[in-house]
Nucleic acid binder design. Sequence first.
RNA 1: GGCCUCGUAGCUCAGUGGAUAGAGCAGCAGCCUUCUAAGCUGCGGGUCAUAGGUUCGAAUCCUAUCGGGGUCACCA
Length: 595
Amino acid sequence: MIERLLTDKVKEAVYSLYHLDADPSQIQLQNTRKEFDGDITLVVFPFTKFSRKSPEATATEIGEYLKLNLREVENFNVIKGFLNIIVKNEYWLKFLSENYKSYTYGYGEKSEKKPVVVEFSSPNTNKPLHLGHIRNNLLGFSLSRILAASGKNVVKVNLVNDRGIHICKSMLAWQRWGNGETPESSGMKGDHLVGKYYVIFDKQYKEEIAAMVAQGSSPEDAAKKAPLIIEAQLLLQKWEARDEATIGLWKMMNGWVYEGFAKTYKTLGIEFDKTYYESQTYLLGKELVEKGVQQGVYKRRDDGSVWIDLSAEGMDEKLLLRSDGTSVYMTQDMGTAMQRYKEYQPEQLIYVVGNEQEYHFNVLKVVLKHLRCEWADSIYHLSYGMVELPAGKMKSREGTVVDADDLMQEMFDTSEAMARELGKLDSFEGEDAVNLYRTIGLGALKYFILKVDPRKNMLFNPAESIDFNGNTGPFIQYTYARIKSVLRKAEETGLDVSMSKVQDADMFSQEKELLKKIHDFPVVLMQAADIHSPAVIANYAFELASEYNRFYHDLTILKEENIMSRSLRLSLSLFTAKVIANALWMLGIEVPERM
RNA sequence: GGCCUCGUAGCUCAGUGGAUAGAGCAGCAGCCUUCUAAGCUGCGGGUCAUAGGUUCGAAUCCUAUCGGGGUCACCA
């Protein structure tokens, strides 16, 4: 890498010129802006303190040194405090010829070290997946691939929330108003059917409360004493007592939901290495709490509940165990974290969970630290923002959710209509046509979500459907398909795609811009893995595709008479296609060979 | 109210200590006899929420204020 060479040489130059050791953070290299001449720019302001000279003079001195002592430096120019370094064509051509065939350019070395465990998705089995879950799933899946590409050994896990009062609500509603309805009898997808009864419960429950309030109860009181909620709680107790009929109903309805989820995951292209169920893990963590009590780091109150005082950390008191001895959310998470620590000895334990749970994860770390679990530092909460609708937040009870299955179907429909209109489907038949517009529709959806910085809230406007032009997944897919078409044509005509004949070809600015963009990929990947952000990869992929499109329009690739130039452009195209395909793979977006 | 977070073009978003702040969409004007027009080129559009501060240099860091969101349950 040229950056590495330059960093070392600049350090050497500063030492030789000013007899001072430059701190690595002072050596700031960046890509030269397009409007200036040069490839890489060194910011010299930090060195003016040492040189006691003007920025211009300092830059010139360092520039002279580099030109003299680094083979790869062709020349330089100085504008204010910026030293613009021009790298020899020879370097770029060598870089291209050495790497253009690689299928894994920029990937990190596969380490045999401890794994990174990524938990994502974690759905509830009482309602179908919506747009918020899609963001979660895409982020978790993409992050896993980015980490894998950067060399980590990744384990993707899902923790299904399959028990609790909310599950009992849909069970109760189905018992009472379901008339034995099943996915088969109703033709509904299992998760949607169960979700329907969850909504019915909520509606009936609200009516009961309203009636009780009309009779003079307080709203709080009514919410606690409504017959329906009492009965749901009873059902939960029966479940916990392993009552046969209740367990049977629970298994049946959860089974419906799992079938539905499996379909959604498949359509979305998401998969896991391991799935955990809360019904099997919800008791974990209790011993941990007991241990904490014995060690005196947690306190048991007179009513039997267990608490931790976190005022030293600037947080409140937190409940760890209820007075009746049952566990809360925190107890379970302590248990599952410990379970994962024991099972995988992970280097990092990543949770992809919405930002509304930031406080929870901060507390989780601190609570574990009090138990002297130093590994709690390896917990990383990838906290992503909400998906908002123009009207505000999505609320399932108000029917303002965007259903995952519906949204994907809409994307497929729009994609199909658009492809037909453009005549893109003319050369495809049957299943191939379906595969194409599904690939494109899904690409548009995934890119739309992943290009946004995970931490930020994002807006989705259902009225304006997701675009297929501009900064979109289809644009990048299109670029890939177009490159493949060029390469096919080259092969048919027997043109040489190899770089074997290229030693000293000229490079036009558009070719060089493209090559430099590819050259950046390893750095981009490292950064994405470092800050856990698929958006970094998404935006890079768009920039690379844009650069290729400009290159494509400015230069004829196949018609070029000069063999060297033609080989250069073909290998550059091949290289671009590979990097685009890899970047999209990390986003979970498929690439079409033709479109 | 305490804590966290966000505020960049009409809209959706990049840019997180460096040069004259960038894309896409929307609007306007061009480009299909060329390897794919889901494309390319050009034009217009900005008090980077506001006010201070730190420094050679701030959209980026610090402080305050305003505005949006989140959170502070014996819910998960």
